[in-house]
Design a protein around this nucleic acid. Structure first.
Lengths: 217, 217, 217, 217
DNA sequence: TATGAATGAGTGTTCATTCAT
DNA sequence: GATGAATGAACACTCATTCAT
């Protein structure tokens, strides 16, 4: 049986994502991938220049699309920084939800020490940080956002944005939250917004109320 | 040359933690561990019943000590749930800080799908959840804590408690925060407390102030 | 240097037969086989799915050809059961003689307790027994053969058919019979026929003679 | 728990016989033996000078007792060579029946090529051959036995004497004869005697009858 | 371009033995 | 004398990759 190159490549990608997600990169052999993809073992080296090439391909794919999502947001968002941040958060959540297996695998693999990972750090995550940094800065200047420590806040934001996709089994089996159905993202999104309302977003009402109080004195 | 068992065993554990932390469990060979530990390869199977036995040993060790930390807190904390929660958070942070490599490795490995992980989930993490659940419930009843969705809050809390230890290189290389020096924990601890003040802890002052305001009307 | 598959495979089979014959299956390592066959160690797993696969292959090969020999005999033998039996015995002897090393190894290995052996028992040896049983029954019915206990006779026949190939060194070193040269088979074959003449084959002459005696009375 | 040396040694011997019988010498590890014998692994090297020492011990034990059986027979047998031969055969059968596992293991191991086996050949089996040879020679001289080729007859005799103990599973599973119960030995013994009556023992009756016939002419 | 065959390095594990106690 | 710990060699096997076709 002959496969068209494109289909085979796609099959390999899908199989790799599934297996890397489940068993980790180092814990998966290209034999397993080829078998699951109904492809020849040599295809992997052929298309992706080896197992590591496949890893690079998938990680890059994830982060490139990821950055695309952010960039599209930033382009469209001509409104306030706050609304823009809200949209970015929502889009990132849905992007990760729609690529759950890839997301889990990449987020896990990114915790290792390797040259590939260092590259990712300086290429994609630095860029991501830049976007967020700019957005937050603007928001703070515009007094839409509280004066928070940006670095710490980013650590905070990243951790809650990634957590459900890095540890879905914890949510599912321990907390009895099902992160695989769409209802979850909606709910989790609202939750994050609610947290940000308290932590990040400057509260106009309170300001007004306080002002009112002050006036009464 | 004969080594004493205890020292060799400890060397293996240390080497394994270091290497698993750096390269992942599947990415590390027992030969590397033995070499780094200046031990015989057979020692690993001898002491830990194979590579998987070593994994189980380390994961169990981490979580047992982890639960110990929580349990000791709960025993000592006869004060308010809120203060108890604060102490638990602080102790967990410092426990993870003092076992950074082990923590990173375990948190990463726990994102895989395997029977070992499932055991950990149902054994240790279920217990941890139980402790937190009880604490939060009490706090909410006592009106020291806001009425939050406990499951979602736990996801939130866990993610920010673990994040710096799971992804220290992100902090270090992207955010330029150094998570390896003690100053970081102190700061991060305060940060978390500050977040919780806004999200979880019922604000007495505000209540009073609001009350005062009300009186003024 | 690349070897053609067929040649390498054959080399492995030959080396394995030689070494298993000499040192036994469990006493031979695949390294030795690969070395003797001038093949890569991985070839053995590659061609035969592991050492056990190689064992199964050899045992099956032996018994399949063995049964073939018997079946061909039975097909051709349209004469008397007695003559057919004689031919089967001769062909089995020569088949084993021509595959001495394989025969010794298989006969030895078949004395172990394992699932493989049990399969052989129920697959090949049961079939062999069926053929012999049928043949003997016919012969007995036709009064060409004496009324012997078939099961016991089969045990007897098998033991003398296999013995020289299972224990050639006993013949050679203790009895000073050389079972490796063709002269031996010829002689041993005659010997067996002579034994069967006395034990199994109904003696026409005697019957006649006795009859004659009887007439004389 | 301390074992007395003698008991431990016996346990090891029993365990070794059982396991060697089942899985073969090379297929059994001293760990398994020690475990089954509830003994320390070091005991085996300690008592028997290693695994090979244990092998030698068991093989020697088997053949020494085996020769003892024959020698006792020969001493007691002051009657005719024929009756003596009958008794030897019976005693050998029962000796092997009473040491089934050891017999199977030794008979199997003796089909290998090794220096140990060569020693056994020249030490015990040569002696056995000598006894049988003498006995047969006497019998033939005394015209109690037919003039048979002694070497071939010995091969024949050995094969039928050993077969049920070397391949009990063939008897059991293929021929549906149970070689493990005492009834079998009795029956098999009679069978052998019956075969020998036809092959080896000079037939007085026939001689007489023939003579009678001759007279009648 | 696509692929089955081939490969040597590397995997985790088990081995029989030795040694200090 | 008896034994638990220690050991290096060997085990069967799988790995990712390469190569000729």
């Amino acid at each position: 049986m002959r496969h068209t190159g494109a289909a085979t490549k796609e099959n390999i990608v899908d199989a790799a994502i599934f297996l890397f997600n489940t068993k980790g990169f180092a814990g998966t052999s290209i034999r397993e991938i080829a078998e699951k993809a109904n492809a020849n073992i040599a295809h992997i080296s052929y298309y992706f220049k080896g197992k590591n090439g496949l890893l690079e391909y998938l990680v890059s794919k994830f982060y490139e699309d990821y950055l695309c999502v952010i960039e599209q947001c930033l382009e469209q968002c001509l409104e306030s920084p706050k609304e823009c941040l809200k949209k970015v958060i929502k889009d990132i959540l849905y992007y990760q939800f729609n690529n759950q297996m890839l997301a889990r695998f990449v987020h896990r693999e990114v915790t290792l020490d390797s040259t590939l990972i260092r590259q990712v750090m300086t290429t994609y995550l630095a860029k991501e940080k830049y976007y967020f940094h700019k957005l937050l800065e603007h928001g703070i200047k515009a007094k839409e956002l509280k004066k928070v420590d940006i670095a710490h806040f980013l650590a905070y934001l990243k951790s809650i944005l990634n957590m459900p996709f890095l540890q879905p089994q914890y949510l599912y089996e321990v907390l009895h939250i099902n992160p695989y159905e769409e209802y979850f993202v909606k709910q989790y999104h609202q939750q994050i917004i609610s947290w940000l309302e308290q932590i990040l977003f400057a509260k106009k009402e309170e300001a007004i109320r306080l002002g009112a109080c002050h006036l009464l004195k």
